[in-house]
Write a protein that binds this DNA or RNA. Structure first.
Length: 818
RNA sequence: GGGCAGGUGGCGGAAUGGCAGACGCGCAGGACUUAGAAUCCUGUCCUUCCAAGGGUGCGGGUUCAAGUCCCGCCUUGCCCACCA
């Protein structure tokens, strides 16, 4: 007996696959249906651990399965190679970001190859290489031409530790997504991409994404944050100006007893400038600026504000109501001002109590009338309008329409929509990114770099200092250039692009990665895209996955591609947990794949990762579980070994038929699990069950060699997506030429082997014939002793065993018809 | 505060409304062996010799039948969060 020694053959097969080019795709091929299987490309920082492996192992299982189902599968790999960590390393360890990045890429490439992941390495892309970022810049120019890229002086999120600005999506609870430093607000001139032009499309087209997890779609929906409401004008007393306030609860307008402006509101600024507010207000606004971003948990922040000394008019009640400015109103949402209805908004209630502002109940519930002096908090639900003039008695729902109509007729307000989504800030004051291809000329202004002058090369010979400034700023050769229009001296933009720009289009580049003439070949991209299956972590739900959708839609509108959504199906895998926390280098709980592979071989690692639980859920790593997977592969191996010398001694027809049934059932169940989603854990368990049965039949020599041989062959195909190396090796040992992948197709289930003939049995309920039971033919009539229904319960007795109802006879389903 | 997903043995987890606990881990007993941390066999939800019950976070309901569907709670995790 030869032991299972994966080390003896795993690398052999990896080389074989590469040499034969089994994963190398001719994108022009038209003979087979295409299947684009994409895993999110990694940021190459250090080496991969088993937590990372899950993504690639899942992707490979899908790719290999689809290949065996007759698809022409494109599975590319590349590198999201620009980014901050490389630059931080450079400052800390005096390594050039490029050196550091390329070294990591080399190491990770070796790892992926040693795991036997079947990538088409000819399609490899690296976002930090000029032949890639040239086209990132080109896309920027296209967006610029289309008016989708613009520069503005705006308050931005600034991380003092990373020394750069961040997109809204990169600010988590007021802190930097990367380093958790509190984000400061700064005013800077920055480049934005006009993602807000696509808000409605991004929202509506979520409906097209029927094969995306609901969770991701909901997260995007919430992130876009659409609210329908009314924008109401509140005239300011002694002024011709109006304050417009957005509300989703126009039905509460009669309860609006004051108005609040955000401290950053332009009116406040104006009043301070023309000296028409008290020093108290000036002081408050000044302090607000200092504290505005200091607080992590805004929701728990004590509400503070001051009376501006000015009044507005509630256009529905014609009452004079005070104008306040307060910290709880956000400048970045809506109009930066709100109508306050203390009785029906918790925040306003809290503020009004504190500053003793007037309140009026305008919504009541039918059951318990609300009494103002007994209110302990706002009533935020809907109800019947009271104290609301001619609208009294209406339901909130109807009142919203009626009042909106009234306001539009009287030019008091208008129906409107508000979104939370902001434009995408892409400027980064960092070195290691794609330079923004813009030139500033004193004479001609802001100009795009000409297409023929791309790429704007990122200079490599720069000095890294922990000053916080981008080294590009001090790189004279880079900064100084000629104006593309007048030819005079001009300066380059020194900011680089957010790396999410790089990753928002890489799936297009994979089709023709070496194309020197264009970013992508429209015809081929239209053929291969959208991606059939995209696989990655859920952490990209509101960042990468929104950006990529936006860029796709923009390119669609520019008629460069003919699809509106980049990813037809999305799968988000769960994290691998160790000791209760996410596996990560910084937590010190990583399991290194190298040692694991050394000990058990890579198929064991792959199989365990797929078997440990449903792949969309987080899963706790267990070293024991790995051993279990290893034991299984050992048993698998030994079975093929014993088969060589196997001879049937006593063929038992019943057992043979039963084995054949289980075999076909296994094919069916595994196929369903593969087709129906990513149910690798149960698919593998069915294969284990079949193996258990097989092992016991072989031990008893009661099954024909012919059937065994058939099953063993099919088993190698079934297990191939999960453990391809052992599959190939045993395939060869069974005397087959070439490989499983080249030679075989997924086994078909012989449905006739599953069919159970049934007989009908009468069912008596309380002595009366009430129906019939269908029973598998194996249960002879005399075996069914009794079928009774007592206390309204049907009981089926077979011999002495009670089978509760229409269940199973000798593992066969029995149906009852009453 | 809002949204989403969960809660099943000692553990990871299975169950188109139809034998709850597949498969794996662990554990116990046995076989083989000089040896076993290899391998194989048997057992392993609880009460119980058997028989028969009970059992999927808690409380109700629908159904011949509920882990699964409905209503109300408790609880854990994740995401978003003064978004008017």
């Amino acid at each position: 007996m030869v032991d299972y020694q994966p080390k003896d053959f795993e690398s052999k097969w990896q080389e074989y696959w590469q040499e034969k080019g089994l994963f190398t795709i001719d994108v022009e091929d038209k003979t087979k249906p295409k299947y684009y299987c994409l895993v999110m490309f990694p940021y190459p920082s250090s080496e991969l651990h088993v937590g990372h492996a899950r993504n690639y192992v899942i992707g490979d299982a899908v790719a290999r399965y689809k290949a065996m189902r007759g698809f022409y599968v494109l599975a590319p790999m590349g590198w999201d190679a620009f980014g901050l960590p490389a630059e931080n390393q450079a400052i800390k360890n005096k390594i050039h970001p490029k050196t550091w990045t390329l070294k990591n890429i080399e190491r990770i490439t070796d790892q992926l190859k040693s795991w036997g992941i079947g990538y088409d390495w000819d399609k490899e892309v690296t976002s930090c290489e000029p032949d890639y970022y040239k086209w990132t810049q080109w896309i920027f120019l296209k967006l610029y031409e289309a008016g989708l890229a613009y520069k503005k002086y705006a308050p931005v999120n600034f991380c003092s530790s990373c020394k750069t600005v961040l997109a809204n999506e990169q600010v988590i609870e007021g802190c930097c997504e990367r380093c958790s430093t509190e984000v400061e607000e700064k005013k800077m001139e920055q480049w934005f991409l006009k993602i807000t032009d696509y808000t409605e499309h991004l929202l509506c087209d979520l409906d097209l994404l029927t094969d995306w997890p609901q969770k991701v779609k909901i997260m995007q929906e919430n992130w876009i944050g659409k609210s329908l409401g009314v924008e109401i004008d509140f005239p300011i007393i002694d002024s011709d100006k109006k304050i417009s306030c957005f509300t989703t609860r126009v039905d509460t307008i009669f309860g609006a007893t004051y108005v609040v402006l955000a401290p950053e509101h332009t009116l406040i600024k104006e009043w301070i400038e023309n000296d028409s507010v008290s020093p108290e207000v000036v002081e408050f606004v000044k302090n607000m600026k200092r504290h505005a971003v200091k607080t992590q948990d805004l929701a728990e922040l004590e509400k503070e504000g001051v009376f501006t000394g000015k009044y507005a008019i509630n256009p529905m009640t014609d009452e004079k109501i005070p104008i306040y400015t307060a910290n709880y109103v956000l400048i970045s949402y809506g109009t930066g001002s709100v109508m306050a209805v203390p009785t029906h908004d918790e925040r306003d209630f809290e503020f009004a109590k504190k500053y003793d502002l007037p309140m009026r109940v305008v919504i009541d519930t039918s059951e318990v009338p609300i009494k103002l002096n007994e209110m302990k908090g706002a009533y935020e639900g809907e109800g019947i309008l009271v104290n609301s003039g001619e609208f009294n008695g209406l339901k909130s729902e109807d009142a919203k329409d009626e009042i909106a109509r009234y306001m539009e007729e009287h030019n008091i307000g208008r129906s409107g929509v508000q979104y939370k989504l902001r434009d995408w800030l892409i400027s980064r004051q960092r070195y290691w990114g794609a330079p923004i291809p813009i030139i500033y000329c004193d004479q001609c202004g802001t100009l795009p770099v000409a297409e023929k002058d791309l790429p704007v090369i990122l200079p490599e010979d720069v000095e890294f200092k922990p000053t916080g400034d981008s080294p590009l700023k001090y790189c004279e050769d880079f900064v100084n250039t000629k104006c593309p229009k007048c030819g005079g001296a001009a300066k380059r933009e020194v900011d680089t692009m957010d790396t999410f720009v790089d990753s928002s289009w890489y799936y297009l580049r994979y089709i023709t990665p070496r194309n020197k003439k264009e970013a992508f070949d429209t015809k081929l991209v239209n053929k291969w895209l959208p991606v059939d299956q995209y696989i990655g972590g859920i952490e990209h739900a509101t960042m990468h996955l929104i950006y990529a959708r936006f860029i796709t839609k923009a390119l669609f509108n520019l008629k460069l591609i003919d699809f509106k959504e980049p990813f037809a199906k999305l799968f988000t895998q769960g994290m691998i947990i160790k000791d209760g926390v996410k596996m990560s280098k910084s937590k010190g709980n990583v399991v290194a794949p190298d040692a694991l592979i050394e000990k058990y071989g890579v198929d064991t690692m792959r199989l365990y990762i797929l078997f440990m639980g449903p792949p969309e859920k987080d899963a706790e790593w267990s070293d024991r579980g790995v051993e279990g997977a290893f034991r299984f592969l050992n048993r698998f191996w030994r079975l093929y070994d014993t088969f060589q010398t196997y001879s049937a001694q006593e063929i038992n027809n019943t057992r043979e038929a039963e084995l054949n049934r289980i075999f076909n059932l296994t094919i069916k169940k595994v196929t369903i699990d593969m087709e129906g989603g990513f149910k690798f854990n149960t698919a593998i368990s069915f294969i284990m069950e079949l193996l258990n049965q097989l092992q016991s039949d072989v031990a008893q020599c009661c099954v024909s060699k012919k059937l065994l041989s058939k099953i063993l062959e099919a088993l190698l195909v079934l297990i191939y997506p999960f453990a391809p190396h052992i599959s190939e090796e045993l395939w060869q040992k069974m005397g087959k030429t070439s490989s499983v992948l080249e030679n075989s197709l997924w086994p078909e289930c012989d449905e006739s082997a599953l069919i159970q003939e049934t007989i009908e049995m009468p069912v008596q309920i309380n002595g009366k014939l009430r129906g019939k039971v269908e029973v598998a033919n194996e249960a002879d009539e005399e075996e069914i002793r009794e079928i009774v229904l007592s206390n309204d319960k049907v009981k089926v007795f077979i011999q002495d065993k009670l089978i509760r109802k229409f269940i199973v006879v000798k593992k066969r389903v029995v149906n009852i018809v009453i």
